[in-house]
């Protein structure tokens, strides 16, 4: 059994408007997001000059942050159009949308770098350091770590 991704399907997909909500909505279905949710979003002046977004959802205040996908990365929604009948069958995932950014919402707390989602984005950078080859440029590494050093 193999699980493949139809690479060609990525070429023709368009961007999706995405919101990651801080609550579980039980169900996978159509919803009038653009009619009832999106128009209610307000820009709010945060301290430190950053602008945040606010919205009221079911009477609760949500505070949002627009998160770009890290540089060199791409967001994709992959869907399995048909379920396999047997375990041995090859499975294929197809892209249905792409995205360069999405908005995540916190329940009442202001978005910060401690949020799961922001750490997820930071992981891409940390992983690239952890998993890139280390053989050659030891010298430059040492100079880097001396910059980092802060005793």
């Amino acid at each position: 059994m193999a699980l493949c991704v139809d690479g060609k399907s990525l070429e023709s997909v368009g961007p999706a408007a995405l919101h990651l909500m801080p609550c579980t909505v039980e169900g996978n279905a159509e919803a009038n997001v653009s009619q009832f949710f999106t128009p209610a979003i307000r820009q709010s002046e945060e301290s430190l000059g950053t602008t945040g977004q606010q919205v009221s959802f079911r009477g609760r205040l949500l505070r949002g942050h627009e998160m770009p996908v890290p540089e060199g990365y791409k967001g994709v929604i992959l869907k399995e159009p048909s379920k396999p009948f047997t375990e041995d069958e090859d499975r294929t995932l197809r892209a249905t949308h792409s995205f360069e950014k999405f908005t995540y919402w916190n329940l009442e707390t202001a978005p910060s770098t401690n949020d799961t989602i922001q750490r997820a984005m930071a992981w891409t950078s940390i992983a690239s350091a952890l998993h890139s080859p280390v053989e050659s440029d030891k010298a430059s590494l040492e100079s880097q770590s001396s910059v980092t050093g802060c005793r």
């Binding site: 919101h19 909500m21 579980t24 909505v25 996978n28 997001v33």
Partner: peptide
């Protein structure tokens, strides 16, 4: 802990 996606005009649990 809690979360769902809004994708265009649909919900993903």
């Amino acid at each position: 802990d809690f979360g769902s996606w809004f994708i265009n005009d649909s919900v993903q649990q």
